[in-house]
Structures are given as C-alpha cells and as structure tokens.
Nucleic acid binder design. Structure first.
Lengths: 231, 231
DNA sequence: TCTTGTGAATAGATTCACAGCT
DNA sequence: AGCTGTGAATCTATTCACAAGA
C-alpha cells in the first residue's frame, strides 16, 4: 500500500464501482472465489489496466500472482460506496415512472429502502405500493424528517421538479436523483444526478446518423434551415 | 470559422448538446430571440467557456458582441444530433418500466417515434399503448425490419437483456438503450447506452457518505468484513 | 463596448509497460 | 510463472484569458 485512501477517489472511478460490484455479484452467484483483473474487466466490459487502477484507489486488496478474492472485494467496494448502511429513499411523483421505479426489482439492491412515496394527486394518495402508503406532497417535509430520508428521487413532471427540489433541500436532503427532464438549480453541497431518456436517445441518434453518413458518404448539406423549421 | 466540422465532435460535447437544446427550447418558449453564451450557460448549468467551445465544434454560429440566435442554434444542434429526421424506436419489455417509457411525455420529443412494442407475456400482447399494439417477442425481427426500427430500448428483466440484444443486433439494429441492470456484450459498431437506477443511487450514496464522514470527522474503520458479511 | 471563438495552460482520465510480490 | 500495483506517457476535457469581430 502507499498513496491509497488518503483523500478523494476520482469521479470516473466512483462511477464505475457499481459496475464492478454488479460483475462481482454475478461471479459470486456462480460460486467463483477468486478473479483476476483481466477476467473481472471482461465481465464488467472495461480495460483491465483501468480496472486495476480504479481498485488501487480503494486500497491494495488483490494478491499478486493470484487475483482478487471475490467476497472480500464485494465487501470493500460496498463499504466504499456506503452500501453497508441503509439509505432511506423517497420517491416523489407516483405516475407511471414513479410506480416503475418503486417496483423496480434492482431498486432495493442491498443498501436502499423505499421509505416514502409522495404525490400531489389526491386520487393517488393513500394507495399502497411496495408496502408503502402514498403520502400527499403537503407532508413532504414532515415525512422526510420523521423517516430519516436522505436520498430523494424526483419522478414528477418537469414543471414541478424545481419546486420539489427546493422543498426537499430546505428539509435537509442533499442527494437528489432527477428523472424529470428539467435542469435543477441547487445550492453548493447538494448532489444531483440526472437520468434522462431523451438525452440518451439524442446521443444514440447522433451516432446512428454518423454511421448512416459514413455508409452513404453524404455528409449532409446545411440546407435551408428557415424552411426546415417553419420559422 | 476554421477547424470546425472537419471530423469528430468530442464525446463530452455530444453528451451536452441535448442539454443545450433543452435550455434553448425553454428560452424559445419564453420568446427569447437571442442569447449570450453566459446566459445560455447559466440556463444549462455549465460554464460559459465550455459552452462556447462546445458550440465552436459545430461551426461558427454566433455573432460577436451579440450572442446566438435562439432559433438558428436550435436548428443547428438538432441537425447535428440527427433530430431533423424521424427515428423509429422499439421498446422491448412492456412491464412497469416499459409502460412508463412509452407514456413518457418527453419521450417523443421531436425526432423520435414509438414504432413497436414487444413483450414475451401473451397476456400483454395485443394490448394497446400510445396507439400501438404490443407484439409478441417472436415477431421481433420481422417487425423491426418492416417498421424500419433503428433504435431499440431494452426494458426487460436483466436475465433477458443479452438475448434481446443479440436478436436485435442480428436484425440489423446498431443503437441500443439498455434499462436492464445487466452488462451487454455487443460487437463493434453497435452503440449501447445504459441507464441504471441502482448505479445512480450508489453514486449518490458514496457522496452522501462522504458528506456524513466529513461532518462527524470519523473516517470509518475497516472493521471486520467477515462478520459484516456473514461469510 | 460587448461577446464570440480559440490558442495556451491546466487538470483529469486512460493506457502502456514493467518492477515487485506471491 | 503469473498477476497486481503503479510510475510514466498519452490522450481527452476543462478552464483561462484575450485577440478579433460586430
């Protein structure tokens, strides 16, 4: 060991740890006790040098000439990610998406627990879902406080997202996962992660178009934008 | 103009173009005709130098001393992303998540169209959703071909994801958006983007834990992992 | 005077390649 | 003999800071 664990694991590394964890869980299920960086890298779909460097930021948990102990590495990554404790998660917005998220099998992978559901529609309030009754959005602050919610998932329409964010932040929440297609403005110290279907589709469309251009060899002319846009 | 548009827009830039597009659409709705890089950067939540450099990769579409024409920039970004044409999208897996995606308002933002829905459950096949009948997964290849599907969204359980991917790739699809919590292995030339709730939650948990550690000043001891894991 | 577009500087991430340990 | 851990090299992205254009 040497420089590991002092301060700060690179963001790019943190973003890959869940991937490694999933690959490791797959190996563990199949009874694998030990794995080399090369094999784990293949299972996770990354380059093995990158994998080793990523893991080296957590500490020196491998054995030269042998590889990594699967169970031990699962534990170390889980601990680093904070999954050895339980996080109470609230879902705001129980529409199609909110329901899907609440029911999502992988949602409550070890470490997370749906602790509250909120909606503004009184027709939905009181309904039970994954063993939880839906609360009215008026109760947002008090329920968050009472149930110790520390992560909020926003699954409301875009128009409501910012005000939900403002309220949960005022209630002390500093971690938000936003599914609404809106840019959230938050004070420093609050982490927001965004999941956005249309962004992802647009990125795919870009590459798809590139592939099509490459095949036909037509790099697309600028064209008359005013006409195309009906401006 | 000078080096713009020759070959290759950086990936990081491509990933931000949808964000700019959304911010621009918001401005357009409020009737704004012209915007400076500074104001647009604020609306998109990025640094203005980065925004200008990103846009410079598309070409020289601004006016010094003035800013960018909102409509014109919307058109240029849309064109670059391939949104001036229509993409036929298929959703495989009509469970909670698939339904949510199909109904997702922002889904069919300009440029995308749900052209097919598939499920393996015969109880679901035939059901109508957003004007489309659900087809049985047996029809996957023929329907993809007939309707010109070029982007496939996988919203199946993890166990089915790889085989769905294999089949749609064999049917000629080269762009996949994967919501199943599984690592997909695909041949070169196929683009896969992954959206994963548990990965995002885990990244938030990491930062949340860091914040908690910083406050209490206790950097968490290594502890007895064997005991914690029940190994 | 204001704001873009961009070289130059800096920071960050990935990959290479091999010394060092088992 | 095999595989990790890591410096060094490379590549990519971000930020600075200002010349040039409207």
């Amino acid at each position: 060991m040497s420089q590991a664990r002092e301060r700060g694991i690179p963001d790019a590394t943190v973003a890959r740890l869940p991937l490694y964890l999933r690959a490791l869980n797959g190996l563990a299920e199949r009874g694998t006790a030990t794995v080399s960086s090369e094999d784990l890298a293949v299972a996770a779909g990354v380059n093995s040098a990158k994998l080793r460097k990523d893991l080296s930021h957590l500490g020196s948990y491998g054995t030269r000439g042998v590889g990594y102990d699967v169970q031990y590495l699962i534990y170390q990554i889980s601990r680093e990610l904070g999954l050895t404790q339980d996080w109470a998660v609230a879902i705001v917005g129980v529409g199609n998406l909110g329901r899907a998220l609440a029911n999502y099998g992988g949602f409550v992978s070890r470490g997370f627990r749906v602790a509250a559901l909120f909606d503004a529609d009184t027709a939905v309030v009181g309904e039970r879902l994954v063993g939880m009754a839906v609360d009215h959005i008026d109760q947002l602050e008090s329920v968050i406080d009472k149930r110790g919610v520390s992560i909020v998932v926003i699954a409301t329409p875009a128009a409501a997202a910012q005000q939900v964010a403002d309220r949960v932040i005022a209630a002390g929440v500093t971690s938000i996962l936003n599914f609404a297609p809106a840019v959230l403005t938050v004070p420093g110290g609050v982490d927001v992660r965004k999941v956005d279907l249309s962004t992802e589709l647009q990125i795919l469309a870009f590459h798809e178009q590139r592939k099509a251009d490459r095949e036909t060899g037509s790099p697309m002319m600028a064209g008359d934008w005013a006409e195309a846009m009906d401006v």
